[in-house]
């Protein structure tokens, strides 16, 4: 293993897909990320991207699920010695049939009060975004961001 990619820290957290936990998810990721001494802008980028991913789970992923106990979100985070922060946001919800379509700017299935900009913001505010989704089998969003300009 290359020295600069050595994993320094990690966490995992599971919580109910309730909108009240949007702020909570930003809080835990923000605390975790703070160990890397991010700039205000970097921290804001990470918080916003995570908020978008978690909101998607709450608004879309479980819209057909009636069993409250199954509505869970799992956030995992890790960072490596080179300052690469990786956050994954996973649900076991309805999944997406067409990920590419869902990622188009202004596209939404959430009604006119949703802007359709969630994925665009995630893409813009991170260094790498990957989305794994299968209809009926949930979605995992993985966000990567290098924290600390000196490490870039």
């Amino acid at each position: 293993m290359k020295k600069e990619n050595k994993k320094l820290n990690s966490f995992s957290c599971t919580f109910p897909a309730k909108s009240v936990n949007e702020g909570f998810s930003r809080g835990i990721v923000s605390s975790f990320c703070s160990q890397l001494d991010p700039t205000v802008e970097e921290l804001c980028d990470v918080k916003t991207a995570v908020s978008e991913a978690v909101t998607n789970c709450i608004v879309h992923a479980y819209k057909y699920e009636t069993d409250e106990r199954k509505k869970k979100i799992v956030i995992k985070g890790e960072y490596t010695e080179n300052g690469c922060l990786k956050i994954s946001v996973k649900d076991n919800g309805c999944g997406m049939e067409n990920v590419e379509k869902a990622m188009e700017p202004m596209y939404t299935e959430g009604g006119e009060e949703r802007s359709g900009m969630g994925f665009s913001i995630m893409k813009c505010f991170t260094d790498k975004l990957s989305v794994k989704s299968k209809k009926g089998a949930g979605t995992t969003v993985i966000l990567k961001k290098y924290i600390g300009k000196a490490n870039k």
């Binding site: 930003r26 804001c44 918080k47 916003t48 908020s51 978008e52 909101t55 006119e112 009060e113 949703r114 802007s115 359709g116 900009m117 969630g118 913001i121």
Partner: peptide
């Protein structure tokens, strides 16, 4: 001190 795309929806909805 924090706003995500839900804020965009709020702003654009009122604008409309």
């Amino acid at each position: 001190d924090f706003m995500d795309s839900s804020g965009l929806g709020l702003v654009l909805g009122r604008y409309r």
